[in-house]
Amino acid sequence: MAQAPVPIGGPTAKSTFLAGLWANNPIFCQILGICSALAVTTRLENSLVMGVALIFVIAMSNLAVSILRHLIPRRIRMIVEVAIIATFVIVFDQFLKGYYWEMSKQLGPYVGLIITNCIVMGRAEAYALHNKASLSVVDGIANGLGYAVILAIIGASRELIGTGKLLGYEVLSGNWYVPNHFFIYPPGAFIALGLLIWLIRAIKPQEDDSSQSGAGS
């Protein structure tokens, strides 16, 4: 797991936050959580809800894992983490089904699939197991936010180009704008995400390429 440079004296709230959001962003640095980033970003609204779901799940599971970190037996720690994560994911999924029915239909199975999102498990393993609870929550929120912002950008561009709308409101008038449906198809997601990562890596100074971890689901 790639780690951002840790300041002397251990991580602070600020360094943890910035690492998750930018320096070690889960999507464009670690290339994690790509499946859901591709699947739900057909519309901005879906992307936002998915982002909120992930922020909630990472923050809560990081908190729980961090509180229990001295108790969890090493041998079964992965199973315990998965159980904790799954619980929070199902809580969120049920909440959507009860209170935001339309949204839950649109997101389909992807909220449930947060359980398999590498970002959540990765943060529990790499951060929450070794740091105190308050910092772990900050780390969870920052990583969730790093994911959510990228999702929102992709969702906004795909919805805008693909339908001429944003959050369902017509932005580019149908009188002169012909939507390019390519961008609401799956290949459009790959291209939008690829271009975004290309752009960000062109802006962001590359430190050490060998620290890039491999792709994950």
């Binding site: 619980t87 199902i90 809580v91 049920q94 909440f95 089904k97 009860g98 209170y99 029915w101």
Partner: peptide, 13 residues
Amino acid sequence: VLTAVAEWITPRR
């Protein structure tokens, strides 16, 4: 936890 949530949500769903 999951049972409690299901109890609470099912009628609404």
